[in-house]
Amino acid sequence: MSDAAKWYVIHTYSGYENKVAQNIEKAVENRQLHDLIHEVKIPTETVVELKDNKKREVERKLFPSYVLVKMVMTDDSWYVVRNIRGVTGFVGPSSKPIPLSKAEVEKLGVEEKKVEVDYKVGDTVKVIDGAMEGFVGIVQELDIDNNQVKVAVSMFGRETPVELELSQVVLMDE
């Protein structure tokens, strides 16, 4: 089988997601399977709830009853994960594990991509993607944590601030 680790989706009993993730991590530790099973994730989102006129931040599972595992698919790794208590099987036709595609992994936001930029506040940049493609502007703000850059673009003779993703602009050669 393939030597590269890929993301697979595991179906679990409802409410067992955290327990399954812990048990997989424990099995990896106990059996020294770090080279086969790399990561275990439960996709969550933080939601603000209003209850009794009080705001509360609550973490909710995006996909209840599912756990994501980055692993190299071998008979051993398949057997270990499949036999964890609470796991009902892998997602795929007739329980044959099918890895997530790169597009699916990106869309789910499972792997965090670090974007390195070679521009700073005050630099002249060119927009290379999106609705503002081809425009040139000056960087006003950089928010690397949120993958955002604010660029002042000249439109119709006026400076207009535009918020873009970091990867949508490149440094202009001066």
Rank of each mutant, 00 (worst) to 15 (best):
W78Q: 09
S77I: 01
Q148E: 14
G86A: 10
V139Q: 11
Q148T: 08
M132I: 00
K107E: 15
V110F: 14
V127M: 04
K102G: 00
R82P: 03
N147C: 03
V127W: 04
V80R: 08
V117A: 01
S95F: 13
G130M: 03
A103H: 06
Q140F: 01
W78I: 06
P93I: 09
T88A: 02
V125F: 01
M132N: 13
K102D: 13
E116Y: 14
G130T: 00
V91T: 04
V105N: 04
K114E: 15
Q148S: 09
D145I: 08
G109L: 05
T88H: 04
D143C: 00
R82D: 12
P99W: 06
G134R: 08
R85A: 10
I138G: 05
I84A: 06
Q148R: 15
I138K: 14
Q140V: 07
K96W: 08
K113W: 07
G92E: 04
V149K: 03
E112A: 04
K126I: 02
E112N: 10
V136A: 05
P97V: 00
V127C: 09
Q148V: 12
N147W: 02
G109R: 05
L108K: 06
D118S: 10
V110T: 09
I98C: 08
V105Q: 01
G92F: 10
F90M: 01
V121H: 06
L142I: 15
L108S: 02
I98A: 11
W78F: 14
G130L: 02
I128Y: 04
R82M: 12
